[in-house]
Simulated assay, not measured.
Amino acid sequence: MIARELMNRHFPYVTADADVDYVAKLLSECDIGVVPVVDEALSPIGIVTRSNLERARAPIRADLGDIPPFLLRNRAKPTFHPGPFALRDIMTSPAISVSSGAALPEIAKVMEDHHLKRAPVVDGHKLVGFVLLREVIQAIASGGALPPHERPVLSIRPRERNFCEVATAEEFRQLVAAHERELEAERDERRRAVAEMREQRIRELAAQRLTDAQWRELLANARKAASAGLAEHMLTRFPSQLCVDGGRAINAPDPHWPETLRGEPADVFRRWRNELHPRGFKIAAQIIDFPQGLPGDAALFLMWGGRS
């Protein structure tokens, strides 16, 4: 067994400019009893324990004296009030660490030589975990230092993630990236759903025919437009995809655009050609919107402007 297999991966850490009272709060919330201090490269440069904080505690007023130990028994630890110290003044430095590939005997020797109860684990120079002396002793007693073929299986219960963990900025960036991927997937799904609905609507429109009642209603609405002083009226509006060329001929404009019409718009054009064109009415087609720069809806306009 090596340090990487035994180490605790979830722990808080701070830089040397952290507030001492903040470090005290981390120590009270975490169960490993130590907060490592790292530099910008996440290399351990020191550690802070409860004993380090005691040296930074504001001195007790002389007229009060120390509180007798029997009065503190079974009571909650008092709120920490730091004195005029910076974290780098009270931390233990340098931080004695072990390599993530160190074997149990090597870890035990380092901890024994330096009288450590806890030791940072580094991968290269980067802090990646912590090993506790009690877990090293337990692993050795369980046979963790034996050769692999003689080593009994040792199951170490993973520590639960708790509220005292401190994430890295990289973890936060990964969370942002994951959120953006989810949003993009949702947008893609919405676009796909809209496209499917539009295709279904186009299929329905292509099969739809203009009834006599609908034609009479279109002409009645055109008459109302003329009564209101208008010189033209929109007879019908439809998706440009209803045209066999997606509306390109209408947008060009190409004089053969009527040949691209399907469904009800084709019927409207034929009724105009047969009934209204001989009476002096004109018809025009136009793309009336361009979502994302592409032809959107098209429309057919009945026109009667100018003097007869």
Rank of each mutant, 00 (worst) to 15 (best):
216 R>T: 08
97 S>W: 06
42 L>M: 14
153 V>D: 13
290 F>N: 01
273 R>V: 02
305 G>S: 08
182 E>L: 14
137 I>G: 00
149 H>C: 01
79 T>C: 02
286 Q>C: 03
301 F>A: 04
103 A>M: 05
74 N>P: 04
230 L>M: 11
223 R>G: 02
91 M>H: 13
189 E>K: 14
127 L>S: 01
130 F>M: 15
106 E>Y: 02
267 D>M: 04
161 R>Y: 12
209 R>C: 04
124 G>Y: 11
164 C>T: 15
157 R>K: 10
86 A>M: 14
64 L>C: 01
145 A>L: 07
290 F>P: 00
300 L>P: 00
110 V>Y: 12
206 A>Y: 01
10 H>K: 12
95 A>R: 05
210 L>Y: 03
32 I>P: 08
204 E>D: 02
82 P>V: 11
36 P>T: 13
82 P>I: 10
17 D>L: 06
302 L>T: 03
3 A>I: 03
13 Y>M: 15
52 N>D: 14
94 P>A: 08
65 G>W: 10
67 I>K: 13
289 D>C: 05
17 D>N: 12
162 N>R: 12
117 K>G: 12
242 L>F: 07
291 P>M: 01
9 R>D: 08
188 D>I: 08
64 L>G: 00
157 R>V: 15
151 R>F: 03
204 E>A: 06
150 E>W: 09
260 T>Q: 04
74 N>H: 15
303 M>C: 09
206 A>H: 01
33 G>I: 11
76 A>I: 12
249 A>S: 07
78 P>C: 14
255 P>A: 08
196 E>W: 07
290 F>Y: 15
229 G>Y: 03
237 R>L: 08
68 P>T: 09
260 T>N: 02
136 V>M: 11
214 Q>A: 05
135 E>I: 06
81 H>S: 14
34 V>H: 09
240 S>P: 05
213 A>C: 01
87 L>Q: 11
62 A>Y: 11
